[in-house]
Design a protein around this nucleic acid. Structure first.
Lengths: 208, 208
DNA sequence: GTCTATACCACGATAGAC
DNA sequence: GTCTATCGTGGTATAGAC
């Protein structure tokens, strides 16, 4: 254990997260990772077999964490709308809290050696399957509109993931405000067209 | 000019697009780019000053093309809903047609040297500004619901861009079908909640 | 405009002392 | 568990002939 309470193993991984996110896996030298962790490059090999192992551990750890959190939500809640709300909040919170880790997962899939890619991809597939289960269940129970489950899940994941690229904790909006906006985009529509009041029968105008 | 009608300069760039997209900028060796283009690595330097110039030219060319197409739509159409429909179709078509080029733009920003980044970022900002102008105008004219223009534009760009990662021309859906689905997601809502008929006054039930 | 040959360097990884 | 020293590879880029 080191002065800051982290093991050297953890310090090395934290440094790798920082540099993989900043420069990309291939552009991040092991020597720089070692320098940030406070040791020599050669000493990394006492804790990890090679550079690739750092990437795999980052991806595996945080994909597992993401899946576990969504599984927990599905077990905890039954109402489709509440499940959706929790899933959106969870996705955005995870991706903004572990911004660098998920950025690496999203951009460095190519850097995975053939040997490790299937495992990480299966974790990503698992997450998509859980989300699609949520959506399908909500549609079958008549809570959500019938639509293409796969495409809806892709669109939802894409827009919620991207939040992490622009969100700033000290910015105009809090995470909770952003979550509220995205819940509305997803549940009620991003740009719901204003109903054309002039063409509406009088008796329904009060719905606006 | 070469047998296939492309200049060597174009062949080199095409090879760079292929390998930058497949392996990433830093992991794509100039020797391999040269091999695919059918020359020796050293000969690339007759056409481009260095590797970075290949990346800059790819990014600049296709961001300009994207901006020009959206500017054309804004000039051609006035109706906010039609503008939105055309913008969505254009974004999805561009990103699926030039899948590799836009994938590079989206994932290799980090690989741009400091010197070139502001220029490329300004082109990306320009696109966002054009789209935000479209949305703001539609809200001001009462066609779209009032919502956060910036966030709406980010969400829209993110979900439409991501189509390129899973779309297959020989897949279950045609581009046109995908465009139709995304238009509905964006204009009418991704998961519009089924209105709860039981709690609605009788006289408005006919709206469903 | 393309080639061969090569300079030069930074990288990941290893060996072996402490 | 960390160090110093170093190996071997493969990268971008250049020199100069053709």
């Amino acid at each position: 254990m080191r002065p800051d309470g982290r093991s050297m193993r953890e310090s090395i991984l934290a440094a790798a997260v920082q540099l993989f996110a900043q420069y990309g896996y291939h552009a991040a030298p092991l020597r720089d990772i070692a320098r940030i962790a406070g040791i020599q490059a050669a000493s990394i090999y006492h804790h990890y077999p090679n550079k690739q192992a750092l990437l795999v551990e980052i991806m595996e750890t945080y994909m597992l964490r993401l899946n576990t959190s969504l599984e927990h939500i599905l077990k905890e809640y039954d109402d489709p709308l509440q499940r959706l709300h929790e899933a959106i909040a969870n996705h955005i919170r995870m991706h903004t809290t572990y911004k660098e880790e998920f950025f690496i997962i999203d951009t460095e899939m190519r850097a995975l050696e053939e040997e490790h890619r299937p495992h990480i991809l299966s974790l990503r597939d698992k997450y998509e399957a859980l989300l699609q289960e949520l959506l399908r269940d909500g549609m079958e129970r008549g809570i959500f509109r019938q639509s293409d489950v796969k495409i809806a899940s892709y669109a939802m994941i894409a827009m919620c993931t991207e939040v992490a690229t622009w969100f700033r904790p000290d910015g105009r909006l809090s995470v909770q405000q952003v979550i509220t906006i995205y819940r509305q985009f997803i549940a009620e529509g991003l740009l719901v067209l204003m109903p054309d009041v002039s063409r509406m029968p009088d008796e329904s105008a009060h719905l606006l």
